[in-house]
């Protein structure tokens, strides 16, 4: 993993012809030419990105990658996945190893500016929490003074954790391990009293990795805002638009009541919003540099946001909560497609 970071750093050293701005092809052109989207995803987080028993990647982050491929190629399967740890992800995107990073990554101002990334939006509103073994009989995060806490490095989690304990005048000992497998081993073997990450991660880990899920409780405190979303590199507005609107199309489709089952029949609808969305009128696809049926392809092959949520997160026991549409009291809101 270290050699990967080094390699990626070296590729920044050498990438691109020196001082030849005009010759640099846009990401959209490069992606079209190679015939697939290279998508950076989590190495394995149930519900977000994880290969199933057949080796097919599944999850709401994976669905964003597939939506982009559907929009660009009309074929959601034209994606290649690069599993990335928390530490590898930014270098991989900066250096051009991946075209887009869709890996439960928190949108922060540092990442949006000095790391050279552009976040396109939010596909999951999350917050950080704590998981402890039930037998500890801990009821609140305020009782964690002196605890040993397992955490992954290079995350906002690591920073929020320090902030929270500082703010509450408590002490803790971090055990910082990069690989998810290893850090979970450390927690489940009892090396740590607490495991902390985004609540979505805690829920997924408890269901899919805990020897006995009922032995672990997630404490009620949510100590941070973690808007998770896909990101692209600075400096390529066109590709930024394509990725951004691929995500918005999934959210807008849910709002319009379009889903993978009814999209063919609804495409002929008299509703002007749906006509524009489906490319029957106007040329929104062309404005993006894509086929006019880009949004139809997304909904037909990947589904709308709600379908993706229900297929990937609901079976794990996730509640829509903040991730409901704005019309239903949640935060999911796409700007108008017109």
């Amino acid at each position: 993993m270290k050699s990967f970071t080094v390699a990626a750093a070296l590729s920044i050293l050498a990438a691109g012809p020196a001082h030849a701005q005009s010759a640099a092809p846009s990401t959209l052109e490069a992606v079209t030419k190679k015939g697939y989207v290279q998508c950076g995803v989590n190495v394995g987080l149930a519900g977000f990105s994880q290969p199933d028993s057949q080796g097919v990647w599944k999850g709401i982050d994976v669905d964003v990658c597939r939506a982009i491929a559907a929009a660009v190629f009309g074929d959601a399967s034209k994606v290649r996945y690069t599993p990335l740890t928390a530490q590898q992800r930014f270098t991989a995107l900066q250096s051009g190893e991946v075209d887009v990073l869709s890996r439960n990554t928190t949108w922060t101002i540092t990442r949006d500016t000095s790391l050279g990334l552009n976040f396109v939006g939010v596909n999951y509103y999350d917050g950080q929490g704590f998981m402890v073994p039930k037998k500890r009989k801990v009821k609140s995060a305020k009782q964690l003074n002196g605890a040993t806490i397992c955490v992954q490095p290079g995350t906002t989690t690591e920073l929020n954790l320090a902030d929270y304990f500082r703010a509450n005048n408590m002490k803790f000992k971090p055990v910082v391990i990069e690989k998810l497998e290893e850090v979970l081993n450390a927690y489940f073997s009892g090396r740590c009293d607490v495991y902390t990450t985004d609540i979505s991660g805690l829920v997924a880990v408890r269901v899919s990795r805990a020897p006995k899920p009922d032995d672990h409780v997630i404490l009620p405190e949510v100590i941070s805002k973690e808007p998770l979303g896909p990101a692209v590199r600075h400096g390529d507005d066109r590709w930024f638009d394509v990725v951004k609107w691929s995500l918005f199309a999934m959210i807008e489709a849910e709002e319009l009541g379009l889903n993978s089952k009814n999209i063919d029949q609804q495409a002929g609808s008299q509703n002007p919003s749906i006509q524009r969305f489906a490319g029957a009128t106007g040329d929104i696809g062309k404005m993006l540099g894509l086929d006019n049926r880009w949004a139809v392809n997304i909904v037909k092959q990947v589904g709308n946001y709600g379908e993706s949520f229900d297929a990937n997160l609901k079976p794990l026991g996730f509640d829509r909560g903040l991730n409901k549409l704005w019309t239903q009291g949640g935060l999911m809101y796409a700007p108008p497609i017109r």
Binding site: A8, L13, P153
Partner: peptide, 25 residues
């Protein structure tokens, strides 16, 4: 790999929080 906070571990975290991989390496 096993979570001992040596120089590489701290520098990795630093370069990840700041995004300055070249300086960190």
């Amino acid at each position: 790999a096993i979570g001992y906070p040596d120089l590489v571990s701290i520098a990795n975290t630093t370069l990840n929080q700041t995004g300055q991989a070249i300086e960190g390496i």
